[in-house]
Write a protein that binds this DNA or RNA. Structure first.
Lengths: 159, 159
DNA sequence: TAGGTTTATTTCAGTGCGCAACTATCAAGT
DNA sequence: ACTTGATAGTTGCGCACTGAAATAAACCTA
């Protein structure tokens, strides 16, 4: 027997679901239009740009984007073709590979960033009061803790 | 010159973005596993189930899922193959078509719903206090108003 | 050094989507 | 009535993304 949602819960869920979908659609469209950069790529470039030596192992990329290895392999192939990323052997374990963000890649990211930030401001940040922004961060943190905890319990990631 | 995000803003945005992505991924995976129903289909079935006579015009479906006509056409083809939806002429304008949710379709939806609701509870609703739920609804409403207002200003929908 | 495990790649197939071309219908003007 | 133009929807084609499975290479342990 199911615990159905109350009207308030239903309303919250629907509004939330629709709003987030529209928001992400919008940001992705804008990013693609402005920088010819699929959202998938952007995420990977950001991860690399913030990593030490602008470098990450393939498996790390897979972990933080929680995706299968093959997906990363495909994506890095594309990024390598564009000249934004290059592969390097991982010295300590020669099965492994490192993805390194090139200067061109960093430049592309820097070129795309302002538009993206402007979009985030326009469609999210600047719409909310500081109070609401704090609330949103708190709520998101709860969800995040829960979802990553789930993954951990399922034995999918390191502690 | 770009107004970059402050640390607080950055944190809110990242947490929010990641949390929503993980949440939707999770719910979609569960739904697919439990009901063999792609999230895309589910959305359409829900829309139809709540419409008068369980019926909607193709263009309405396109509007409320904000997607291109062709996408709806393809999707309804699939749903029709499954026997969950049937097409009917629209009497008042014979260019138009109605998508009608069949009894089988309603049954499939009813079968999938409990799992889905349980997931929404487990990964969202039950994690938050009533206060937080209200905050989330308010915030989402702000985003929603803004984004649909944008669409309207761009002349994409009726008032 | 044999056997099992881990890391990553590649091939292949499936999916979902949009664009462009097309058909059919309607609505307006002449 | 007849043309013209707009609207509703479909279809075919190609593209991009993803995952499953098979493979190869390096590693680890007994």
């Amino acid at each position: 027997m199911t615990r159905w949602l109350t009207d308030d819960e239903q309303h919250a869920w629907r509004t939330f679901g629709l709003a987030t979908r529209l928001l992400t659609d919008r940001l992705e469209r804008d990013l693609l239009a402005a920088a010819d950069m699929p959202p998938t790529y952007y995420e990977l470039l950001v991860l690399l740009s913030e990593a030490p030596r602008r470098t990450m192992r393939m498996s790390e990329l897979a972990h933080w984007t929680n995706s299968k290895p093959s997906r990363i392999s495909h994506a890095v192939n594309k990024l390598e073709q564009k000249g934004w990323v290059r592969r390097e052997h991982y010295a300590d374990d020669r099965r492994g590979w490192l993805a390194v963000l090139t200067d061109d890649g960093l430049a592309a990211l820097r070129a795309a960033a302002p538009r993206h930030v402007a979009g985030v401001r326009e469609h999210l940040i600047d719409l909310l009061t500081p109070e609401q922004l704090r609330q949103l961060a708190d709520i998101s943190q709860v969800l995040l803790d829960h979802l990553t905890e789930q993954d951990r319990a399922a034995g999918r990631v390191e502690p």
